[in-house]
């Protein structure tokens, strides 16, 4: 790794740690938020947003040139609450009000939140809606804008994803990038025990997508992958399969196949954040 790259990754590491903490704090304020599903996304979102791969103008929500980011696995989106506040979509103190009456930050994000494009969390919709946006952008001759759809692996059991995947492959939608947060767990078990998804990259390839497989917690690897995907012309839709760990950084979650619905106690949170009074 050259020096400038290592400095950049150092900054990203600091940012990722901050987001990890913010995510846990959000969960502490609103225990109904899904923490484990959000923690598997921390490095993916860090590398995506803080390397400048997502074009946006927080002060101009409907700016035509913005990249459309759809977080189809809405349960895992609370990390994005902190990112959007950090980028200036809304004041940072909104994060204090998560889950409270009058806040726009709920357990699952909706487009009442500045920066969110679609209704999320009802699983299996994002990829198809994103493909529709991609067709619209193409029709408007907007070739510089990407539609980035983040899906979970459990969500891929929804058949509508594969209707969209066929569609994108057939129409060579090179403005669509699908990032799979492959954390290997759904609600009741590991996904390979429910309905196995492997070989997942080969499945997307068979549907006409160019695929990448990357360690979803390695900021350098993610940055390299995004650099190749976002900085060079694409021939068709791209799927990035990011291998992740659900509940990353929280040992009791990482080891728990039922961690999706696990809520951390205030004591556990204080211990994780090093804020215990010994």
């Amino acid at each position: 790794m050259n020096k400038s790259k290592s400095v950049m990754c150092g900054k990203l590491t600091v940012k990722a740690r901050w987001l990890w903490e913010q995510t846990i704090r959000l969960h502490g304020r609103a225990p109904e938020t899904r923490l484990a599903s959000s923690l598997s996304l921390v490095e993916i979102l860090t590398a995506l947003y803080y390397n400048g791969y997502v074009k946006s103008k927080p002060a101009e929500l409907n700016w035509e040139g913005r990249d459309r980011v759809i977080i189809s696995k809405g349960h895992g989106a609370i990390t994005l609450y902190a990112i959007l506040a950090d980028l200036g979509y809304y004041p940072m103190n909104e994060l204090e009000r998560v889950g409270q009456q009058g806040s726009f930050l709920g357990g699952i994000p909706d487009p009442i939140i500045p920066g969110f494009e679609t209704v999320n969390g009802s699983l299996g919709h994002g990829l198809g809606v994103g493909c529709g946006m991609a067709c619209g952008l193409r029709q408007k001759d907007n070739t510089s804008t990407s539609v980035v759809v983040i899906v979970g692996d459990g969500e891929l059991h929804e058949g509508a994803n594969w209707e969209a995947a066929m569609f994108a492959g057939h129409h060579r939608l090179n403005n669509v990038v699908c990032i799979v947060d492959f954390n290997k767990k759904a609600m009741l078990d590991n996904t390979d025990k429910i309905i196995g998804l492997e070989p997942l990259d080969a499945k997307f390839s068979a549907f006409g997508w160019d695929t990448f497989r990357v360690d979803g917690h390695n900021l350098a690897a993610l940055t390299d992958c995004f650099e190749r995907v976002f900085k060079y012309p694409r021939k068709g839709p791209v799927a990035i399969i990011a291998d992740t760990i659900k509940g990353r950084g929280v040992p009791v979650m990482e080891s728990d196949p039922l961690c999706h619905v696990r809520t951390l106690s205030k004591k556990e949170i204080a211990e994780l954040l090093g804020e215990t009074r010994d």
């Binding site: 529709g132 946006m133 067709c135 408007k140």
Partner: peptide, 19 residues
């Protein structure tokens, strides 16, 4: 979209969001 009504609605939604 082929015989795929779920995708029919999703694609239509995306197009509508683009104006």
């Amino acid at each position: 979209v082929g015989i795929a009504e779920q995708n029919l609605i999703n694609i239509s939604t995306g197009l509508a969001l683009e104006g």
